[in-house]
Design a protein around this nucleic acid. Structure first.
Length: 672
DNA sequence: GAGCACTGC
């Protein structure tokens, strides 16, 4: 490894008896701070035990008296369930009793629950029913440094609630870098500013640091920039393999295509390894794989074999793999961003932030001292941003604004976010919500339409469609379509080398009018012919986990609509649902889609690409779409996304031009 | 003729 420049940094380890965890030494100070100040920022590295221990200390200290609950939010569903299980074990109680969790589709809590783990998105939903979150004495927002859309909004809402609930205690867990920012956020412009000067927190809050437990990780940089990091990554694998002791390798790349390339290259070159040498086993890991395809990375390496896990950013925080000693970091990540001028989302490979690079390196030091090879120079490292731009500054904010309005926060411009989004994003969101009639001329939430749209767990355009559907007599169908589009493309799975079979499997479900009706067909087949079985899915190249999820989503949406008093027409008895309601059922569905997706209308050009009414860039039907190689005139689409140099539309359905003016007269008069 | 990083309600 001669061409790597060696410098070191120490990143602290995991799974120790709880009495030995660093948090235990800080128990009294933690409890004192939380008792004394409304806001406590906890800087706790991996292995500090903050997530599992702090709620137990709080419970023991009496924060659950009078039936109050301690809430701990997590950014991901798995985190909420696994941490709750662990704490229930430590407290020797049955999960769902004193300790429980609540995530979408699963509520394992009871009247006895004192400590509740939940996703941050779900706690925000609870605020719709209980605006002051009055059931909770303490709310701990874990992993706030990840800056997810919902944790940022939650922090803003908690800051507001705090003013009306002096008894509420907020605990924010953060990485070092952002701790002061979070504290300043809670202090800023606050009624009880005050304080003694030197402390930023004043009377509002304090920061407490808990050391983590990890092994040191040596960081190695390239001396010269790599011309091709894919090639360089493969070389590094073999350098490690021939020169370094046992231990598995985790490699960070940006996406599926790159991962497959690297896996092939490693497999090719592994053939020329010494016959007696330890063998090498490359394994892919990215979200698009099915559960069965993912489990291999978690199994211990076979005898005399070194695993090389080639992963996307999924391995940075969402998924933890034991036995990793070496990390190879390409220095890039694919990030989504929303352009408020064009309304187009981009997905682009971007240099990682320093915080991200540190997190990736830390994956090497969980079980013993490790090494991290960065495929860039130390000079390049110094130019990286400190932290990734928060989602709230690069997302379509229509769902966020709708949610805030539903929480009674009318003055969107003055809402206090941890970092405010650009005004253009807010304006674009307000315009869209107005065009969908979710907001009135005074930007007030309309009732019941806007309020119901906020309550439905689908994006505003689809929410509008669902709420129009019974008038078109296609509510049952639209519920299935909404559930299927919520899967965001994860309907089919892709198997290398079997493209043709995948295509022919898909063709079986194809419906001339477009992708939405095709998705409906798939859903119907899964619940009838397929009997909701995994085997049927495999035979048809469908992702079983996704299909099961679609059933749950559909059930949940159905319950919401029933609560709104909308009658669900039952068509479950008919075999051919599309034609069951008469020959124009498909047309009703397409008309209904237009009532929500009129702003996503486009017309096919002679060259086969699409243009919106306002012109703009050429839109290509995504290769996964039925419209990829078919003729069409006017269409509506679910989503538009730019990847590489092309802009793709996904989930495309044929409509009539006249419907646009019929269902969105204001929108289309202005445009022409 | 060619493909979606990752979460969440």
């Amino acid at each position: 490894m001669g061409d790597f420049d060696l410098s070191s940094s120490f990143i602290p380890s995991l799974h120790k008896p709880s009495s030995l965890l660093p948090t235990a030494r800080h128990r009294e100070s933690l409890l004192y701070l939380i008792e004394t100040f409304p806001v406590t920022i906890v800087v706790g590295q991996t292995g500090s035990g903050k997530t599992t221990q702090i709620p137990q200390y709080l419970d023991q200290a009496g924060w659950c008296a009078d039936g109050k609950i301690i809430a701990v939010t997590q950014p991901r569903r798995v985190a909420a369930t696994t941490v709750a299980t662990r704490v229930a074990e430590e407290m020797r109680c049955i999960l769902g009793q004193e300790v429980g969790y609540s995530i979408r589709f699963e509520d394992l809590t009871s009247a006895a629950t004192r400590i509740k783990f939940l996703t941050d998105g779900l706690l925000l939903r609870e605020a719709l029913i209980d605006p002051l979150l009055s059931r909770y004495s303490v709310i701990m927002v874990d992993e706030a440094h990840e800056r997810s859309l919902s944790s940022d909004v939650l922090l803003g809402v908690l800051k507001k609630i705090r003013k009306r609930r002096p008894d509420l205690r907020v605990v924010v867990s953060s990485a070092t870098l952002q701790a002061e920012d979070f504290l300043r956020f809670f202090v800023g412009d606050s009624a009880d500013h005050g304080g003694t000067g030197s402390e930023i927190g004043g009377s509002v809050g304090r920061i407490i640091s808990l050391e983590g437990r990890m092994y040191p990780v040596d960081i190695h940089y390239l001396e010269q920039p790599a011309e091709d990091y894919v090639e360089r990554a493969v070389k590094t694998v073999f350098d490690i393999h021939s020169n370094e002791p046992d231990g598995d390798i985790l490699m960070f790349l940006t996406g599926r295509e790159e991962i497959n390339t690297v896996i092939e290259l490693i497999a090719d070159r592994a053939g020329s390894l010494h016959a007696k040498a330890q063998s090498i086993m490359p394994l892919p890991l990215y979200a698009g794989l099915t559960t069965e395809q993912q489990i291999y990375v978690f199994e211990p390496s076979p005898e005399n074999t070194r695993k090389v896990i080639v992963a996307t950013n999924i391995a940075e925080a969402s998924v933890t793999i034991d036995g990793i000693v070496y990390v190879i970091d390409c220095g890039y990540v694919k990030l989504r961003a929303y352009n408020p001028t064009t309304g187009i989302e981009t997905l682009t490979a971007t240099p990682v932030s320093k915080a991200s690079a540190t997190q990736r390196a830390g994956r090497a030091g969980r079980t013993k001292p490790g090494k991290c090879y960065r495929l860039y120079t130390e000079q390049a490292y110094t130019t990286l941003d400190e932290a990734t731009i928060p989602e709230i500054q690069r997302s379509n904010l229509a769902p966020v604004i709708l949610q805030l309005k539903a929480l009674g926060i009318d003055n969107i411009a003055r809402f206090d976010y941890p970092t405010p989004p650009p005004a253009e994003l807010v304006i674009r969101a307000l315009e869209l919500l107005y065009s969908l009639s979710a907001l009135d001329d005074y930007a007030k939430l309309t009732k019941p339409l806007g309020m119901r749209m906020a309550e439905l767990a689908v994006e505003p355009m689809m929410a509008k469609v669902l709420l129009s559907a019974s008038a078109f007599g296609c509510l049952s169908e639209m519920l299935s379509i909404a559930a299927m589009t919520s899967l965001q493309g994860a309907v089919w799975f892709y198997h290398d080398g079997s493209k043709e079979t995948t295509e022919s499997a898909r063709r079986k479900f194809a419906v001339e009018e477009g992708d939405h009706l095709t998705l409906l067909n798939v859903y119907q087949a899964f619940v009838t012919k397929g009997k909701k079985e995994a085997k049927w899915c495999r035979d048809n190249y469908l992702n079983f986990k996704s299909m099961t999820r679609a059933v749950s989503i559909r059930n949940q949406l159905t319950r919401y609509l029933e609560r709104f008093g909308v009658r669900i027409d039952d068509l479950s008895a008919s075999k051919d649902v599309l034609r069951a309601g008469g020959p124009d059922k498909a047309e009703q569905i397409r008309r209904c889609l237009t009532t929500g997706f009129f702003a996503h209308a486009a017309r096919m050009q002679p060259d086969g690409t699409f243009r919106t009414v306002s012109g703009g860039t050429a839109l290509h039907a995504h290769p996964s779409s039925l419209m990829f190689n078919r003729k069409a005139d006017w269409v509506v689409f679910h989503e538009v996304m730019e990847t590489g140099n092309k802009t793709f539309i996904r989930e495309v359905t044929k409509i009539e031009k006249g419907w646009l003016v019929e269902y969105a007269p204001d929108y289309y008069q202005v445009k022409r």
